[in-house]
Design a protein around this nucleic acid. Structure first.
Lengths: 126, 126
DNA sequence: TATAATAACAGTAATCATTACTGATAAGGA
DNA sequence: TCCTTATCAGTAATGATTACTGTTATTATA
């Protein structure tokens, strides 16, 4: 269902997400938004994240069973540390070195690139 | 734990995976391998997939809560149809058109690139 | 500004892929 | 052949996400 009304819960969620540069999981975001709206429901958070993703205001970063969310909706690459699990924005490759702004954030050992769209078969039948 | 002994279950799993070019989920693979080993346990499949991934014989393709598996361990890009959910190998981009071998498989509307490795902080402390 | 329709909410139960556990089986070295 | 223990089958537990139910609050209209 599309967004039809405003709610302070949704506005707190998007505001929180746009004010940070880490890539919180649903639970991390939940705990953070609860500091502003203490009785925010987890179901409400999930529902709003899905709505906001659908209307292009939030980017979902697939990360196993624990997706992450990003207020920066320009599609851009990410780097996940296999050791601590943190997810960084990834701006450029240079050999095996990842550069973000002017700072090296880590060393790539593997990657996963998934493109989304519509395959030829489905395009034909629709 | 590393692999130390052979088992017909594990061999059936890797053989099945290497003989196909779709990208089965754990359940799809389970149902397929059960045609050879009817009493294969789902837990055994998951345990072996994790072991095989760890020792580099199987590639895990992150796909939400429903990961997919690939017997082709050369890291390579994938294309997922948002309509039918099928996952194709993706060999090259050309404008918005995806080409696999000589055949167009679909039209890209979005993508997700996640690089894995070790971040600077963890690299320092290890 | 009041009223009414219903989107959105809080709280909670259900779902479902995956992981962990337990006792049995079998690989492979001595 | 015997023994150690990796691996197994079967099943219970976990945990993120989704669905459901009754309540609240947004917003169009009178």
């Amino acid at each position: 269902m599309a967004i039809e009304r405003r709610s302070k819960q949704r506005e707190a969620i998007i505001e929180n997400l746009q004010s940070r540069y880490d890539h919180p999981t649903a639970m991390e975001l939940y705990l953070s938004v609860r500091e502003v709206i203490p009785n925010l429901s987890l179901g409400t958070l999930y529902r709003n994240l899905s709505q906001l993703e659908e209307c292009g205001m939030v980017l979902r970063i697939p990360d196993g069973a624990n997706d992450r969310f990003d207020g920066n909706v320009n599609p851009h690459a990410h780097f996940k540390c296999s050791d601590c699990g943190k997810v960084y924005d990834l701006m450029s490759f240079k050999n095996d070195t990842v550069t973000f702004s002017d700072e090296i954030v880590g060393y790539v050992t593997n990657y996963s690139l998934m493109a989304f769209g519509m395959c030829k078969n489905c395009n034909k039948s629709n």
